[in-house]
């Protein structure tokens, strides 16, 4: 594997990690607010808090990792995306700032506060939508590049079916991934009431998720036919994704193997994510920038990969420790600790 492909694969992995943990996090924040505002079920909220509290900061680091890494491995992306994304990027930053800090204010502060809960619940839902603009732009057709000046064509962006289809998919997947995880978590906690609620949410959001995914294929074939052709070459990955989806929904519907069902949801997004990513290569930005012309010098690439491996050696055991204490510890999950 060339350094270029290795680099982008590592980054894509981290973005996938972020996709999963952040979806759980953002969705949970939204459900938390929803339940509180409409006086649904207090027990659910206690369950959500018990999961979220120890891990939210870890979630954020996945994101930071990605954008620091991409500047490291592909410095030219700073030039293209940096200039174009000032406004949407700043909006994302503001949303992240509100989400993270109001989460902490509400959770660690002395009293639960509905406004704080609203702020972090809603901002969490908008963050994925605002981030997807990067993916949308990378398909090409939304940037104007003339004598060294990069400008974002906002009109094109807001009127394009493709960009909206990505936004919709982002929002429904967040709710779907989050609900399916919380179903499993509530089941483990032996919290029947929450379990039934989240199971209903999962099943409810499953159909919109798959419809939105199908809609994306259609929109991409219109917007970027080259990319679509590439996707057809590896269509098995997308069929695999569909299969994972169907089995997981079936299991949840039948109330069986909840852990496996969530793993299948993760695999569903894994295969779709890597299918999308692989077919996007070698382009980082259609048609201006590929992984080969934007790559960092070899010495730095080597140093970054070494640092990455050393970092993994440190992180994987620590992450495992964290999960053992909070995710796989039955007493903690049940609220006995």
């Amino acid at each position: 594997m060339s350094y270029e492909v290795l680099g982008i694969t590592v980054l894509w992995f981290f973005l996938y990690g972020y996709l999963i943990v952040a979806s759980i996090d953002f969705g949970a924040g939204f459900f938390h607010f929803y339940n509180k505002a409409f006086h649904r079920n207090y027990q659910v909220n206690r369950l959500i808090q018990r999961y979220l509290s120890p891990v939210w900061e870890v979630t954020n680091v996945f994101l930071v990792f990605f954008f620091v890494g991409i500047i490291g491995f592909f410095p030219d992306t700073a030039y293209y995306f940096g200039t174009a994304l000032l406004v949407p990027g700043s909006i994302s930053i503001v949303l992240i700032a509100i989400r993270g800090s109001y989460y902490a204010f509400n959770t660690y502060g002395s009293s639960d506060n509905l406004i704080y809960s609203f702020l972090y619940g809603m901002s969490g839902l908008l963050i994925p939508a605002s981030f997807t603009i990067v993916l949308t732009i990378s398909e090409g057709g939304y940037l104007d590049i003339q004598d060294g000046n990069v400008t974002l064509l906002l009109g094109e962006l807001f009127t394009s079916a493709y960009s909206w289809s990505v936004v919709i998919l982002a929002i429904v997947s967040v709710l779907f991934i989050s609900a399916s995880f919380l179903t499993y978590y509530a089941y483990k906690a032996g919290d029947t009431e929450s379990y039934h609620l989240f199971r209903r949410y999962t099943l409810g959001w499953s159909l919109p998720t798959i419809l939105a995914s199908i809609f994306i294929f259609f929109a991409i074939s219109q917007h970027n036919p080259d990319h679509f052709t590439e996707m057809l070459h590896i269509s098995w990955m997308f069929f695999l994704s569909l299969l994972f989806f169907l089995v997981s929904v079936y299991l949840i519907y039948k109330k069986r193997r909840h852990g496996l069902a969530f793993v299948l949801v993760m695999l569903q997004f894994f295969s779709a994510w890597f299918g999308y990513g692989a077919s996007h290569l070698p382009y980082l930005l259609y048609p201006y920038l590929t992984i080969y012309d934007g790559f960092v010098n070899e010495t730095m690439a080597f140093a970054l990969i070494l640092a990455f491996l050393a970092g993994l050696l440190l992180l994987l055991p620590s992450l495992y420790f964290l999960m053992r204490l909070f995710l796989f510890d039955a007493d903690y999950v049940k609220g006995k600790r």
Binding site: I71, G72, P75, M300, L304
Partner: peptide
């Protein structure tokens, strides 16, 4: 950042 990415990305990454 284009220049920084080529030269000083390592500590940024390790951070």
């Amino acid at each position: 950042m284009q220049v920084a990415g080529q030269t000083i990305a390592l500590p940024l990454f390790m951070e």
